[in-house]
Protein backbone atom coordinates (compact mmCIF):
# COMPACT_ATOMS: atom_id res chain seq x y z
CA UNK A 1 0.00 0.00 0.00
CA UNK A 2 1.30 3.40 -1.01
CA UNK A 3 -0.26 5.41 1.74
CA UNK A 4 0.30 3.02 4.60
CA UNK A 5 0.80 5.80 7.14
CA UNK A 6 -2.30 7.67 6.09
CA UNK A 7 -4.29 4.42 6.20
CA UNK A 8 -3.05 3.70 9.72
CA UNK A 9 -3.73 7.24 10.76
CA UNK A 10 -7.37 6.99 9.63
CA UNK A 11 -7.84 3.74 11.54
CA UNK A 12 -6.45 5.46 14.62
CA UNK A 13 -9.36 7.88 14.48
CA UNK A 14 -12.10 5.65 13.10
CA UNK A 15 -11.57 2.67 15.39
CA UNK A 16 -12.41 4.97 18.28
CA UNK A 17 -15.70 6.05 16.77
CA UNK A 18 -16.49 2.48 15.72
CA UNK A 19 -15.96 0.92 19.12
CA UNK A 20 -17.60 3.75 21.05
CA UNK A 21 -20.56 3.64 18.67
CA UNK A 22 -20.77 -0.12 19.10
CA UNK A 23 -20.68 0.20 22.89
CA UNK A 24 -23.43 2.82 22.91
CA UNK A 25 -25.50 0.64 20.61
CA UNK A 26 -25.63 -1.99 23.34
CA UNK A 27 -27.75 0.36 25.42
CA UNK A 28 -30.48 0.92 22.85
CA UNK A 29 -33.70 -0.17 24.50
CA UNK A 30 -32.24 -0.20 28.00
CA UNK A 31 -31.76 3.50 28.80
CA UNK A 32 -32.87 5.15 32.06
CA UNK A 33 -35.72 6.93 30.27
CA UNK A 34 -37.19 6.76 26.82
CA UNK A 35 -35.90 10.26 26.02
CA UNK A 36 -32.36 9.43 27.15
CA UNK A 37 -32.44 6.19 25.22
CA UNK A 38 -33.25 8.08 22.03
CA UNK A 39 -30.50 10.62 22.71
CA UNK A 40 -27.82 7.96 23.25
CA UNK A 41 -28.83 6.15 20.09
CA UNK A 42 -28.48 9.40 18.19
CA UNK A 43 -24.91 9.71 19.38
CA UNK A 44 -24.21 6.12 18.44
CA UNK A 45 -25.62 6.78 14.96
CA UNK A 46 -23.44 9.87 14.58
CA UNK A 47 -20.33 7.94 15.55
CA UNK A 48 -21.07 5.03 13.25
CA UNK A 49 -21.82 7.43 10.41
CA UNK A 50 -18.45 9.07 10.91
CA UNK A 51 -16.81 5.66 11.03
CA UNK A 52 -18.28 4.79 7.68
CA UNK A 53 -16.91 7.95 6.08
CA UNK A 54 -13.43 7.23 7.41
CA UNK A 55 -13.49 3.57 6.45
CA UNK A 56 -14.81 4.26 2.97
CA UNK A 57 -11.86 6.54 2.47
CA UNK A 58 -9.46 4.02 4.00
CA UNK A 59 -10.86 1.28 1.75
CA UNK A 60 -10.07 3.39 -1.30
CA UNK A 61 -6.52 3.85 -0.11
CA UNK A 62 -6.13 0.16 0.56
CA UNK A 63 -7.51 -0.82 -2.84
CA UNK A 64 -7.87 -4.52 -3.76
CA UNK A 65 -11.21 -5.72 -2.44
CA UNK A 66 -11.26 -3.62 0.68
CA UNK A 67 -14.60 -2.11 1.77
CA UNK A 68 -15.77 -0.29 4.85
CA UNK A 69 -16.98 -3.65 6.12
CA UNK A 70 -13.82 -5.66 5.57
CA UNK A 71 -12.00 -3.00 7.54
CA UNK A 72 -14.63 -2.84 10.27
CA UNK A 73 -15.22 -6.55 10.69
CA UNK A 74 -12.32 -8.59 9.40
CA UNK A 75 -9.32 -7.61 11.40
CA UNK A 76 -7.85 -9.47 14.35
CA UNK A 77 -7.95 -7.94 17.77
CA UNK A 78 -4.30 -6.86 17.56
CA UNK A 79 -5.09 -4.88 14.41
CA UNK A 80 -7.66 -2.61 16.03
CA UNK A 81 -6.02 0.58 17.24
CA UNK A 82 -8.75 2.31 19.25
CA UNK A 83 -7.82 3.74 22.64
CA UNK A 84 -8.63 1.67 25.71
CA UNK A 85 -11.09 4.27 26.95
CA UNK A 86 -13.76 3.62 24.33
CA UNK A 87 -13.88 -0.14 24.83
CA UNK A 88 -14.71 0.11 28.53
CA UNK A 89 -18.05 -1.44 29.48
CA UNK A 90 -21.29 0.37 30.33
CA UNK A 91 -21.22 -0.66 33.98
CA UNK A 92 -23.89 1.88 34.82
CA UNK A 93 -25.14 5.13 33.31
CA UNK A 94 -22.39 7.06 35.13
CA UNK A 95 -19.74 4.97 33.39
CA UNK A 96 -21.46 5.36 30.04
CA UNK A 97 -21.61 9.11 30.45
CA UNK A 98 -18.15 9.36 31.97
CA UNK A 99 -16.59 7.48 29.08
CA UNK A 100 -18.54 9.55 26.58
CA UNK A 101 -17.57 12.81 28.25
CA UNK A 102 -13.86 11.99 28.53
CA UNK A 103 -13.85 11.02 24.88
CA UNK A 104 -16.06 13.86 23.59
CA UNK A 105 -13.82 16.60 24.93
CA UNK A 106 -10.83 15.01 23.23
CA UNK A 107 -12.80 14.29 20.07
CA UNK A 108 -13.88 17.89 19.72
CA UNK A 109 -10.34 19.24 20.12
CA UNK A 110 -9.11 16.70 17.60
CA UNK A 111 -11.69 17.57 14.96
CA UNK A 112 -11.18 21.26 15.45
CA UNK A 113 -7.62 20.78 14.24
CA UNK A 114 -8.37 18.04 11.74
CA UNK A 115 -10.60 20.46 9.82
CA UNK A 116 -7.37 22.13 8.72
CA UNK A 117 -5.72 18.93 7.58
CA UNK A 118 -3.93 19.13 4.24
CA UNK A 119 -5.82 16.00 3.27
CA UNK A 120 -9.08 17.27 1.79
CA UNK A 121 -11.01 14.10 2.57
CA UNK A 122 -10.08 14.14 6.22
CA UNK A 123 -10.72 17.82 6.50
CA UNK A 124 -14.17 17.37 4.95
CA UNK A 125 -15.09 14.54 7.31
CA UNK A 126 -13.86 16.58 10.28
CA UNK A 127 -15.81 19.59 9.13
CA UNK A 128 -19.03 17.61 9.00
CA UNK A 129 -18.40 15.63 12.20
CA UNK A 130 -17.49 18.50 14.46
CA UNK A 131 -21.07 19.75 14.58
CA UNK A 132 -22.21 16.35 15.77
CA UNK A 133 -19.42 16.10 18.30
CA UNK A 134 -20.05 19.58 19.56
CA UNK A 135 -23.52 18.36 20.53
CA UNK A 136 -22.16 15.14 22.05
CA UNK A 137 -19.86 17.19 24.21
CA UNK A 138 -22.72 19.35 25.40
CA UNK A 139 -24.92 16.35 26.10
CA UNK A 140 -22.33 14.40 28.07
CA UNK A 141 -21.08 17.48 29.97
CA UNK A 142 -24.64 18.32 30.99
CA UNK A 143 -25.13 14.81 32.28
CA UNK A 144 -21.83 14.82 34.16
CA UNK A 145 -23.07 17.95 35.91
CA UNK A 146 -26.49 16.47 36.62
CA UNK A 147 -25.08 13.29 38.06
CA UNK A 148 -22.20 14.96 39.87
CA UNK A 149 -24.43 17.57 41.50
CA UNK A 150 -27.60 15.49 41.73
CA UNK A 151 -28.18 13.12 44.63
CA UNK A 152 -25.64 11.54 46.98
CA UNK A 153 -25.93 8.29 45.12
CA UNK A 154 -25.42 9.83 41.70
CA UNK A 155 -22.47 11.82 42.96
CA UNK A 156 -20.77 8.69 44.28
CA UNK A 157 -21.44 6.81 41.09
CA UNK A 158 -20.24 9.63 38.85
CA UNK A 159 -17.10 10.13 40.91
CA UNK A 160 -16.38 6.38 40.83
CA UNK A 161 -16.80 6.33 37.08
CA UNK A 162 -14.44 9.28 36.58
CA UNK A 163 -11.90 7.72 38.93
CA UNK A 164 -12.12 4.38 37.09
CA UNK A 165 -11.82 5.88 33.63
CA UNK A 166 -9.21 8.53 34.39
CA UNK A 167 -6.32 6.13 33.85
CA UNK A 168 -7.30 5.76 30.18
CA UNK A 169 -7.17 9.48 29.37
CA UNK A 170 -3.42 9.92 28.94
CA UNK A 171 -3.34 7.49 26.03
CA UNK A 172 -5.47 9.88 23.99
CA UNK A 173 -2.36 12.03 23.58
CA UNK A 174 0.09 9.34 22.53
CA UNK A 175 1.23 9.09 18.94
CA UNK A 176 2.30 6.18 16.77
CA UNK A 177 4.99 6.26 14.09
CA UNK A 178 2.29 6.68 11.42
CA UNK A 179 0.75 9.53 13.40
CA UNK A 180 4.12 11.27 13.50
CA UNK A 181 4.59 10.82 9.77
CA UNK A 182 1.18 12.37 9.13
CA UNK A 183 1.83 15.23 11.53
CA UNK A 184 5.05 16.00 9.69
CA UNK A 185 3.10 16.25 6.42
CA UNK A 186 0.46 18.56 7.85
CA UNK A 187 -2.19 15.86 7.45
CA UNK A 188 -2.40 14.57 10.98
CA UNK A 189 -3.13 16.43 14.20
CA UNK A 190 -0.45 16.54 16.83
CA UNK A 191 -2.55 15.33 19.73
CA UNK A 192 0.28 15.97 22.18
CA UNK A 193 -0.53 19.64 21.80
CA UNK A 194 -4.15 19.10 22.81
CA UNK A 195 -3.33 17.71 26.19
CA UNK A 196 -3.24 20.93 28.20
CA UNK A 197 -6.52 22.27 26.90
CA UNK A 198 -8.09 18.83 27.30
CA UNK A 199 -7.37 18.62 31.01
CA UNK A 200 -8.37 22.25 31.46
CA UNK A 201 -11.75 21.69 29.87
CA UNK A 202 -12.37 18.41 31.62
CA UNK A 203 -11.41 19.92 34.96
CA UNK A 204 -13.68 22.90 34.41
CA UNK A 205 -16.69 20.65 33.88
CA UNK A 206 -15.78 18.40 36.80
CA UNK A 207 -15.54 21.52 38.94
CA UNK A 208 -19.00 22.64 37.89
CA UNK A 209 -20.22 19.13 38.60
CA UNK A 210 -18.71 19.42 42.09
CA UNK A 211 -16.60 16.36 41.44
CA UNK A 212 -12.99 15.82 42.44
CA UNK A 213 -10.37 15.78 39.76
CA UNK A 214 -8.50 12.50 40.14
CA UNK A 215 -4.91 12.92 41.21
CA UNK A 216 -3.65 9.57 40.04
CA UNK A 217 -0.66 9.79 37.77
CA UNK A 218 -0.80 6.11 36.81
CA UNK A 219 -2.10 5.64 33.33
CA UNK A 220 -2.85 2.71 31.06
CA UNK A 221 -1.96 2.51 27.42
CA UNK A 222 -1.81 -0.05 24.66
CA UNK A 223 -4.89 0.38 22.51
CA UNK A 224 -3.07 2.40 19.91
CA UNK A 225 -0.59 -0.48 19.55
CA UNK A 226 -3.37 -3.02 19.39
CA UNK A 227 -2.89 -4.27 22.93
CA UNK A 228 -6.35 -4.05 24.41
CA UNK A 229 -8.13 -4.71 27.68
CA UNK A 230 -9.87 -8.04 28.08
CA UNK A 231 -13.17 -6.46 27.06
CA UNK A 232 -12.13 -6.06 23.47
CA UNK A 233 -12.34 -9.72 22.51
CA UNK A 234 -15.97 -9.85 23.56
CA UNK A 235 -16.84 -6.71 21.66
CA UNK A 236 -15.32 -8.22 18.55
CA UNK A 237 -16.91 -11.62 18.97
CA UNK A 238 -20.28 -9.90 18.89
CA UNK A 239 -19.42 -7.40 16.22
CA UNK A 240 -17.71 -9.88 13.90
CA UNK A 241 -20.03 -12.80 14.56
CA UNK A 242 -21.87 -12.74 11.25
CA UNK A 243 -18.86 -11.98 9.08
CA UNK A 244 -16.80 -14.71 10.74
CA UNK A 245 -19.52 -17.36 10.80
CA UNK A 246 -20.62 -16.77 7.22
CA UNK A 247 -17.52 -15.62 5.37
CA UNK A 248 -17.63 -13.94 1.96
CA UNK A 249 -21.32 -13.23 1.81
CA UNK A 250 -23.29 -10.11 1.00
CA UNK A 251 -25.75 -8.82 3.53
Amino acid sequence: MKNKDLYNYILGIADNTLILGQRLGELCGHGPSLETDIACTNISLDLLGQTRSYFQYAAKLKGEDATEDTIAFLRTERQYVNVLLVEQPNIDFAHTIGKQFLFDVYHYLLLEKLQHSKDVNLSAIAHKSIKEVSYHQRFSSDWVKRLGDGTDESKTRMQDAINDLWRYTDELFHTTASDEAMIAQGIGVDVKELKTSYYERVSAILDLAKLDIPESKWFQEGGKKGIHTEHMGYILSDMQYMQRTYPNMTW
Binding site: S33, L34, E35, T36, I38, A39, N42, R138, F139, D142, R146
Partner: peptide
Protein backbone atom coordinates in the same frame (compact mmCIF):
# COMPACT_ATOMS: atom_id res chain seq x y z
CA UNK B 1 -44.69 16.48 24.29
CA UNK B 2 -42.02 14.69 26.28
CA UNK B 3 -40.56 14.36 29.75
CA UNK B 4 -37.48 16.16 31.01
CA UNK B 5 -36.04 17.25 34.34
CA UNK B 6 -35.31 20.82 33.26
CA UNK B 7 -35.63 23.18 30.32
CA UNK B 8 -32.15 22.48 29.02
CA UNK B 9 -32.87 18.76 28.93
CA UNK B 10 -36.28 19.37 27.40
CA UNK B 11 -34.59 21.23 24.53
CA UNK B 12 -32.03 18.49 24.02
CA UNK B 13 -34.65 15.76 24.18
CA UNK B 14 -36.88 17.65 21.80
CA UNK B 15 -34.03 17.92 19.35
CA UNK B 16 -33.39 14.18 19.58
CA UNK B 17 -37.03 13.11 19.55
CA UNK B 18 -38.74 15.54 17.20
CA UNK B 19 -36.07 16.64 14.72
CA UNK B 20 -34.41 13.30 13.88
Amino acid sequence: SLHAADAEMALENARDVYTR
